[in-house]
């Protein structure tokens, strides 16, 4: 940072040029330059993939997690260099491009109907058990999460952000906003779920003897670890794998029904 302040006069010229390119200057901002946001997202994710490969699958090198941390760190450094705060720089330089990528979560999320339909024989046979288990399981979990969050000392916004994390990110975020949470914190929770299940999944399955019931193991892993959880479940067996990919989809719909009711019950909204 010291180096940057020493070269401040040069930064003015560079800053104007870069600012135009990134869309942080008035002119650039009105043009809504999305290129930087798209480039940065791809760059940090590809670095994550590369790290994951050379790190032989070290759990903190999951591409999405690396992408999140590295992306925020780069925005933080650039904001310092431009003499503004991270939030402002994020909004003017990253958000236009980020929003374009974010939009594609809409078709990607509804595309999960396809793997669900491919397992339709299992869904038809076990639909009652799947739906009941997910509703009851989620409801019980919400109580534990709520009181754990309260005990640890999260404020109301923090608690509300923790409740929808079982759903896939694109569905969890609007629900978090609706019940008074911070959707960015919820998105981080969803990413961390996957990191934790990737790191501890095998150990947790053994320790809690979860694989005694293969259907339960599948639904549990799909609920707790999203798509990473269903990848873990496939390693346990094909029953676990199909159940987990069903759970990833069905739990999102269950969260949409159960979480707002729970939030109302607890007086959060």
């Amino acid at each position: 940072m010291i180096i940057l302040t020493e070269t401040a006069p040069h930064m003015a010229v560079w800053g104007k040029w870069l600012g135009d390119a990134l869309g942080t200057n008035a002119a650039g901002a009105s043009a809504g330059n999305a290129i930087f946001g798209i480039f940065l997202s791809l760059l940090v994710y590809l670095i994550g993939q590369w790290l994951f490969k050379i790190g032989k699958g070290f759990f903190l090198f999951q591409p999405l997690f690396v992408g999140m941390v590295l992306g925020i760190f780069i925005l933080f450094l650039l904001a310092k260099a431009f003499g503004t705060d991270t939030a402002t720089f994020y909004k003017s330089a990253y958000l236009p491009g980020g929003n374009i990528i974010f939009w594609f979560l809409n078709p990607a999320t509804i595309a999960f109907a396809i793997p669900l339909y491919r397992r339709n024989d299992v869904v038809k046979k076990f639909w009652l058990e799947i739906v009941l288990s997910l509703i009851v399981g989620l409801f019980v979990s919400l109580f534990v999460i709520y009181f754990a969050a309260k005990l640890i000392g999260l404020d109301k916004v923090g608690i509300a952000s923790m409740l929808p994390q079982a759903a896939t990110t694109a569905i969890a975020m609007p629900i978090a906003t609706a019940i008074g949470g911070n959707s960015a914190v919820t998105a981080m929770a969803c990413i961390l779920n996957a990191v934790i299940i990737y790191a501890l999944g095998d150990w947790l399955v053994k320790f809690f003897r979860i694989n005694n019931d293969p259907v339960g193991a599948g639904l549990g892993l799909g609920t707790a670890g999203h798509t990473v959880g269903s990848a873990k479940a496939v390693q346990l067996g094909s029953i676990q794998g199909s159940m987990a990919s069903i759970a990833v989809v069905v739990i999102s719909i269950v969260v949409d029904i159960v979480v707002p009711s729970f939030a109302k019950l607890m007086g959060l909204m």
Binding site: G37, V44, T86, K91, N99, A148
Partner: peptide, 29 residues
């Protein structure tokens, strides 16, 4: 997984929340 990158990076706008209760949030997650 790639499409979730902007959802993760949007935390850059809420770093103050993370500063205030980041450790607690990670424990709850």
């Amino acid at each position: 997984a790639f499409l979730f990158v902007p959802s993760g990076i949007q935390l850059a706008a809420s770093l103050d929340i993370l500063k205030a209760q980041g450790v607690q949030i990670v424990i709850v997650v």
